[in-house]
Every structure is written in structure tokens, then in C-alpha cells.
Computed example of a mutant assay.
Amino acid sequence: MRTIDMRTFVVLTRTRNFRRAAEELNTTQPAISSRLTAIERKYGSRLIERGSGVFRLTDAGELVLKGFEAALDELDQVSAKLSGSTLKRSSPLRLGAIDTVAATWMPDLIDALHARFPGVQIELTVDGTAPLLAGLMADRLDVAFAIQPLIDEGFRSFSSCMLQMIWAGSPRLIDPGHRYTPGDLARLPIISFAKASPPFLMLAPYFHDEKLLATNLTSCNSLYAIVNLLIDGFGVAALPAVSIRRELKSGQLCALNVSKPLPPMPVVASYQALTQQDTIRAMVETSRTVAGEFCARVEPGTAWVE
């Protein structure tokens, strides 16, 4: 099997579009179709169900994809070893992250990636979970660090870390010595992340379980803005403790003593697993290391690796 045919198959599977695959491989759509037909003829099986808006790997296609991924990965590693070169990347590394990651261990990850890929450009997109996963799906990102994984063909996910969630507010607004029940919290102004986001959706069962409803609620799509509103005494919010560790240490914010703790928030990395396996694998390995080192540095119980 020719290397170009294997690479064509994995690129087509990732992009799910003959035109985009042709553009990425600097060829034509008929050439992509011809290569796919040759592969299917060789294995005597239809590998991709396509047409009328449908693009789906068959069981045989899944098997062939895994084989091609492994083969291309090995070939890339052999080429790197024979040339004696370190990993290189001509195109930018496209990272996506939620606010919390951007405000905590993302700077360390960027430094580590620059050290591993000298001279590489890094494009960082900071957004909510849904837009990040959509960007990954549309091939605008290589890796996304979000609260939920992207579960789809051609993508893999792993847990980067878990973050302790706390209720926090300005000492001008809250009483650090009081033990707040869900009922107490429901009577306070609450600032949450954007509606329909995973952190926002977490609030509903927190109060509904107690047959309460937080009515004085303001949503915001920026962690930076939420923190500043808290410091100004605008309300209280449920946030990862590590994202406001400096404000807690300085006394600008206080953690509320609550009768009902919040569940931890996961940070999940999702990434494309079909092309440039050496580069993507290096990014993944580096992010695992950086997240682990960050968790070991911060206050115990505020961030951990499962």
C-alpha cells in the first residue's frame, strides 16, 4: 500500500470532505476519489458510507483506519530517527482551551511546546466547551481542552485533570464564618458562566435537589469578567479554586463555607488522531506532563490527575 494512499484515507476521514482533503494534500478531488476506490478495491470492502449528507466509516473502515494510523506513525518515527532530527512542524499548533485552563497551566504548556518545537507558531483560542469542540470537529483546532470530550470518529480524548469547585465572593458581601446552605446561596446574587455551558448546567441540580431555585442569577461568558464582578461585590459564583488562587491568597475573594459541596470539574483534552501522529502525540504527551506538574504545585485538593 502506498504511503500517499494511506495518508489520503486518514485525511479524508478526518476532514469528511473530498474538497478539503484535496486542498490539504495539494491534489484534486478526482484524485482523492480514485485513491479511495483503489483502497476499497484492494480490501474488497466498502470503507466509507457516503452520499446524501452521510459520511461514516464502516466497520471495515474503522479497522483499516487503525492500521493506517499505526503504519503512518511508525513511518514518521523512522524518518525522524534516520534523519536525526527533532520533531518539526511547519504549520502552527492550534490549541483551544476554556478560560480556566488559559488562566492556570496553559502558559506552562505553551512554554513547553516552544521548547519541544523550536520556532513553531502557536495559535491559542480561548472559548467555551461547545465552540471549542465545534472548532476541533471543523479542523480549526488540533487539540481542545474543555469540560466535555469530543466523541466522534477520528478523535480521541483523555482526562487532563480534575478541578475542585468552590463558591467564592468578596469579603464585603459574604460572612466567612457562616455556613451557607443552598437556600442561603439562592437568596444571594449569583454569577454563572454562559447559559447552556457545562458549569451553568451544573447549578440547576445543585439547587433543584434542594427544591430551590436561584432566581437572582447573571450569566457571563468570561472568567476574567466574573472574577472582577466578584471582587466588586456584585455576587457569588461557583468557580475552580485554582482559577482564583491569587485572589483568594490576597484576600480579595473568600471561599464560602457551604453545607453542600460542589462536584469537581473535569478538564478533558480531545484531539485529532488521524494525521501527523508524531506531532499530535508529542503535544498530548507534553500536555499530560504539564497538567500533572501544575497539579503537584498547587494547594493539595484543588487540582489532581486521576
Rank of each mutant, 00 (worst) to 15 (best):
G96R: 11
G135E: 03
F55H: 05
D73K: 08
S222I: 15
A238P: 01
A237L: 03
L47S: 09
L36K: 10
P300L: 13
E247L: 07
P149I: 04
D209T: 08
L185C: 10
E23N: 11
R297P: 07
N221D: 15
C220I: 14
L185M: 06
K66L: 11
L173H: 00
A97I: 03
C254D: 10
T129M: 04
Q121N: 10
D232G: 11
R94L: 11
V120Q: 07
S83H: 06
P149N: 07
P264E: 11
Y206G: 05
R281D: 05
T275F: 05
M202E: 07
Q77Y: 12
C220S: 15
L82A: 15
L188T: 14
T86L: 07
E299P: 07
L256C: 06
V10N: 12
P131D: 12
R56S: 09
R7N: 09
A21F: 00
R179C: 10
Q77D: 12
S197I: 03
G301V: 01
A291E: 02
E24A: 05
T27P: 02
R297K: 13
W167L: 09
I190L: 15
N228S: 10
P199E: 04
M6Y: 08
Y271G: 01
E69Q: 15
Q276I: 02
D99C: 09
S287D: 09
T279G: 05
G67V: 08
A112V: 00
H114A: 09
V227Q: 03
